[in-house]
Design a protein around this nucleic acid. Structure first.
Lengths: 180, 180
DNA sequence: TAACCCATGTAACCTGTTACATGATTAA
DNA sequence: TTAATCATGTAACAGGTTACATGGGTTA
C-alpha cells in the first residue's frame, strides 16, 4: 500500500505524469521510497480507478502525448487517514551486512574493498541529501508547516547516510586490525 | 537471491531446522535480513534441490518430527562467490518518512506522537543490538576473523538505531517549534 | 480450558524486477 | 549516426505477505 501513498504524497504539491513521477522518485519522495516506472504506471491506473486521482490527457506535437495525474479530494483524505495510522519501522534488509557477517569466506582485502565501494556511494548520497537540505535555506524557524515536514523527512537521509559512513570507517578499521 | 544467501550464512555455524531458522531470523542473521517462516520453508526446499543444502529427518516422540538442514560444500562455495560480487546499497524505503513528508495533513500532536512511538521502538532495537555486541566481550582485538566479521556486521545495527534515535529527537524538536 | 509452543506446510494474493516493445525528437 | 530523452505500456517471473490448516504437548 505504501507505493500508492507515496505517489499521492508526491502529487500533493503539483500534478505530474507517470514519466515525471518516475523521475521524481529519484528525488523528493524518492529519497524515502523507490519504485520503477512499471510499478508507477500500474499504481497510477489503480489510483485513478479508485477515484483517488484524476487524469488529463495532454496532446503534444513533436513529443509523445502524456497523461497528467492530479490528486482528488478523495485521494487527499485517503492519504490523511493512512498517515494517521501507526506504522512499524522497516526491518533492516541489507545485502552488505550478510556479506560482512559471512565475510571470512573471502579475502580480507576484497571484503574491505567492497566496504570502501559502499563508503564512496554513501558519500555521494549524503551530498545529495545535504544539497536538498540546503535548498530550504538558513532560517529553519521561518519555514511553513509544510516545508518543515518536508525538511524533517529529508534530515533522516542525512542522519542515515552519515551513520553509514561512520560504520564503514569502523568496520574497515576493525577488519584491518586482523592478522589473517 | 539474498534470502537464499542469508539462509546459507545462517547455516554456516551450525545446522538448523526451518523452524529454528525462522526464529533465528529474529536474531543473528535476522538483524540484517528478515523473512517469514513460509518464505524460509520455500527457500529451504529450493536450496536442497539445488544441492546447496542437505537435509536429515529427525524423528521425535512427543514433538513433531523435524528436518535439519546443513550447508554442503557446494552451498559454501556458492555463498563465497555471492559474497565476492559487488552489491548496491539498498534504497531507503520507510513509511514513516513518507508520513512525515506529508505530515501537514494531520495534526502536529498526532504526528509527533507517532514519531515518539518510533523513538521508543528504536530504543528497544538498540538495546538488542548492544546486548549482542556486548556478548563478544571487551577485547575485540582478540576475536577470531570469523567473530570480527560478525561483530562488524552487528555494529551496523548499533549505528543505524542510534542515528534513528537522533533523527527522531531532531524531528520532534523541529516540529514542536512550529506555531501551527 | 484456554492459550501458547513445536513443526511443517499450502494457496491466494500483492509487490517488485527484468525484459521487451514502440517511435519520434534532439544533442554529441 | 549513435545515443539519449520523452512517454507509455505489456508480460513473465521472483520475492514477500496474509490467511489457512494440522495436531500433540505444555504452561497458566
Amino acid at each position: 500500500m505504501s507505493l500508492a501513498h507515496a505517489i499521492l504524497a508526491a502529487l500533493l504539491e503539483c500534478s505530474h505524469s507517470g514519466y515525471d513521477l518516475a523521475k521524481r522518485f529519484n528525488g523528493s519522495v524518492g529519497f524515502f521510497w523507490h519504485a520503477s516506472h512499471q510499478q508507477i504506471y500500474r499504481e497510477l491506473s489503480r489510483l485513478e480507478s479508485a477515484g483517488h486521482l484524476s487524469c488529463e490527457l495532454i496532446e503534444q506535437d513533436s513529443r509523445p502525448n502524456k497523461k497528467v495525474y492530479s490528486i482528488t479530494a478523495s485521494g487527499r483524505s485517503a492519504l490523511g487517514q493512512w498517515i494517521g495510522r501507526p506504522a512499524s519501522p522497516p526491518p533492516i534488509k541489507d545485502e552488505l551486512l550478510i556479506k560482512v557477517f559471512a565475510g571470512h569466506l573471502i579475502s580480507k582485502t576484497r571484503l574491505i574493498e567492497e566496504i570502501r565501494r559502499h563508503y564512496r556511494q554513501h558519500r555521494v548520497n549524503l551530498e545529495a541529501y545535504q544539497a536538498a537540505v540546503l535548498s530550504y535555506g538558513d532560517d529553519i524557524g521561518q519555514l511553513s508547516r509544510i516545508q518543515k515536514c518536508e525538511y524533517a523527512a529529508l534530515r533522516a537521509g542525512v542522519h542515515y547516510e552519515t551513520s553509514r559512513l561512520h560504520w564503514c570507517e569502523d568496520a574497515i578499521q576493525l577488519l584491518l586490525a586482523d592478522s589473517g
